[in-house]
Design a protein around this nucleic acid. Structure first.
Length: 485
DNA sequence: TCTGGGGTCCTAGGACCC
DNA sequence: TCTGGGGTCCTAGGACCC
C-alpha cells in the first residue's frame, strides 16, 4: 500500500461545464443575512459543498476483503465481547437480520440461514480505515475524518463545480486501492449530505453517488417532496428519544422538522436541535472547523470493557482495572497529553441477576500534578476500586476514564515537586514509559506490562472473542498467505 | 452463558464570588 | 416589610453519534 503516499496531486477533469453554487439556492430558503444567528454560530454565506463519504457495511466489508470466498454471502460482525450485531453485509440485511440484535438470541437463526459470524477485529478495521482516508486525501485537499468509516470532504472551487464527478472518482479510486466499497452524498450542509448519502446507498441507479441538487432528475421529485418522505428519525442528530418527542408533536418527517418554528425547536431540542433544523434549511451550522484550525483537543480518554463472565473476586477486578489504566495511559501518551484525574467505574450486568445484586458505581480521583505515568494511574485505579467494591456482587464490566487532559509540553509544573526533589523521579518515570511504549509498539501490545495487569490472557475478565479473524495487515504472524501453483 | 465501547455537547442546579 | 444582579466553576444527568 506504499503507493498511496506517492501519488501526484490530482486535478479533476470537469465532466460538466455548468458552474453552480449551492449556497443561496432558492430551494434551501433565504440566504443567511449578517448578524448573530439564532443557534449562536456564524454561518458562511458562500461555504463549501459537503461530500459525505461512507464505507458501506464497513466491518463486514473488511472481513470479506480477505475472504473472497464470502463474496455474495451473508456476513455479520459482532460488538466487543461478542455481544450484539453491529455490522451486516447486504445479503444479511436481505435475510432480515436486525442491527443491534443480541447475539445469544439470534445465534441459532444465523446458523440456520448460513450467515457467517465474526467477532470484531478493530486492529484490522482501524488499519483499513486509515488506508481509505489516505486514499480520499489523494483526491480531496481536506478530509475531516468523522468516524472509523465516515469522512466529510468540503468541496471548493473546481471540486465544487463537478461534485458528482468528484464522487465517482473517489469511489473508483477507493475501490481500486483498498477494496472497500463507499457511497458519497453531496449537499450544502453536513446534515443534508448525510441524507444524500442515504439515497446514494439505497438507490441503485445512483451508483453510489448522489447530489441533493439533482433530486428531480434522479428521484423524479423536488427537494420538498423528498424531505417529506424521509422519516424524522433518519435525520442526523435525531435519536430515539427526540424522534418520539417529535412524533408526539406531529412532526414525523425531515420536512416537517425543517419547517418547525425556531422558538419551539430551541425550547424542546436545545441549541443542538436548532442547529440540525437550520442545517436542514441549507444553512451550515455544525462543526465549523475551518481550514488551518487545529483539531479540538479531546477531553477524556476511556478504556473499559465487559468481561467474558461474571466476576466477584476483587483480585480479578484489580487486574482488569490495572490493564485499563495501562491502556488508557498508553493512549494518552500517544496523543502527547497528561491527565489531571482518573475515574474508576464498575458495574454488574444490566439485564440479568436479581435487582438486589445490581450496582453501577464510580468514583473520581484527582491528581495533585497532571501526569501520563501508568504506575500512578494503576495506583489510583486500585484506590478507587477499594472505595466502591462490594463483596459478593457479580461484576460484568469495569473501566477507567482519564480526564482533565492537557498537552504534556505546556503543562503546569509543581513548585513542591521542585522543592522536595520528586521532579527528578518523575522525569525518570517518563523515560521509563517512553521505553515501554516503544517496546510494545514493536513487539505487540502488552508484551511489557506491570505485574498488576496479570499474566493470564485467558482470564475470565478478558472479553469474549470466539470468532475473530486474523489481523492480516497489522500482525506479522497473521499475514494473509497467497498460494501460487 | 449470553445485550459494546468510546466519545461529544448541552442543561440544570448548587456553591461561591463581588 | 423589605431581602440584587450577574458572574464563574463544577457536577450529574441526558441526549446524541458511530
Amino acid at each position: 500500500m506504499s503507493a498511496i503516499s506517492a501519488v501526484p496531486p490530482f486535478i479533476l477533469p470537469s465532466r460538466r461545464s455548468t458552474h453552480r453554487s449551492h449556497a443561496g439556492m432558492g430551494a434551501f430558503g433565504p440566504a443567511p443575512g449578517p448578524g448573530p444567528h439564532p443557534c449562536g454560530c456564524s454561518p458562511q454565506s458562500a461555504g463549501p459543498l459537503w461530500a459525505l463519504v461512507d464505507c458501506n457495511n464497513f466491518y463486514a466489508s473488511c472481513e470479506r476483503l480477505f475472504r473472497p470466498d464470502l463474496r455474495g454471502k451473508p456476513i455479520v460482525v459482532l460488538s466487543n465481547n461478542d455481544g450484539c450485531i453491529i455490522s451486516r453485509s447486504d445479503e444479511a440485511k436481505a435475510l432480515g437480520v436486525e442491527m443491534g440484535a443480541p447475539a445469544f438470541k439470534v445465534r441459532r437463526e444465523l446458523a440456520r440461514l448460513g450467515v457467517h459470524v465474526f467477532s470484531s477485529n478493530y486492529a484490522l478495521y482501524g488499519d483499513l480505515s486509515n488506508r481509505v482516508m489516505r486514499t480520499l486525501g489523494t483526491l480531496a485537499p481536506e478530509v475531516e475524518v468523522y468516524s472509523i468509516d465516515e469522512a466529510f470532504l468540503p468541496l471548493r472551487g473546481p471540486l465544487a463545480a463537478d461534485p458528482v464527478g468528484v464522487g465517482r472518482a473517489l469511489r473508483e479510486r477507493v475501490t481500486r486501492w483498498t477494496g472497500i466499497p463507499i457511497s458519497v452524498g453531496i449537499a450544502p450542509t453536513r446534515t443534508l449530505a448525510k441524507l444524500a448519502g442515504r439515497v446514494a446507498k439505497r438507490t441503485p441507479r445512483c451508483e453510489g453517488v448522489f447530489d441533493l441538487a439533482s433530486c428531480r432528475e434522479v428521484l423524479g421529485m423536488g427537494l420538498d417532496d423528498f424531505l417529506g418522505k424521509v422519516p424524522v428519525d433518519a435525520v442526523w442528530g435525531v435519536g430515539r428519544r427526540l424522534a418520539a418527542m417529535l412524533r408526539g408533536a406531529g412532526i414525523t418527517t425531515a420536512r416537517a422538522l425543517r419547517d418547525a418554528g425556531d422558538d419551539w425547536v430551541r425550547r424542546r431540542m436545545s441549541v443542538t436541535g436548532l442547529r440540525t433544523v437550520l442545517e436542514l434549511r441549507g444553512l451550515p451550522c455544525i462543526g465549523a472547523a475551518e481550514q488551518g484550525e487545529p483539531p479540538a483537543p479531546r477531553h477524556t480518554v476511556v478504556s473499559s470493557r465487559s468481561f467474558a463472565g461474571r466476576i466477584t473476586e476483587v483480585a480479578m477486578l484489580r487486574e482488569a482495572l490495572a490493564t485499563h489504566a495501562a491502556l488508557a495511559g498508553a493512549k494518552l501518551r500517544r496523543a502527547g497529553l497528561v491527565a489531571g484525574g482518573l475515574a474508576v467505574h464498575v458495574r454488574t450486568a444490566r439485564h440479568d441477576e436479581e435487582a438486589a445484586l445490581r450496582c453501577d458505581d464510580g468514583v473520581s480521583l484527582s491528581l495533585p500534578v497532571p501526569t501520563a505515568d501508568t504506575t500512578t494511574f494503576i495506583r489510583l485505579a486500585h484506590e478507587g476500586l477499594d472505595r466502591v467494591f462490594r463483596p459478593g456482587y457479580p461484576y460484568a464490566k469495569a473501566g477507567v476514564m482519564l480526564y482533565g487532559l492537557e498537552r504534556a509540553d505546556t503543562r503546569q509544573g509543581s513548585l513542591l515537586a521542585l522543592a522536595d526533589g520528586t521532579a527528578g523521579r518523575d522525569a525518570a518515570r517518563e523515560r521509563l514509559m517512553a521505553v515501554a511504549d516503544r517496546i510494545n509498539a514493536r513487539h505487540g501490545r502488552g508484551k511489557l506490562r506491570h505485574a498488576a495487569e496479570g499474566l493470564d490472557d485467558k482470564a475470565l475478565w478478558h472479553m469474549r472473542q470466539r470468532r475473530r479473524s486474523p489481523r492480516r495487515t497489522t500482525a506479522w504472524k497473521e499475514l494473509a498467505e497467497a498460494l501460487c501453483k
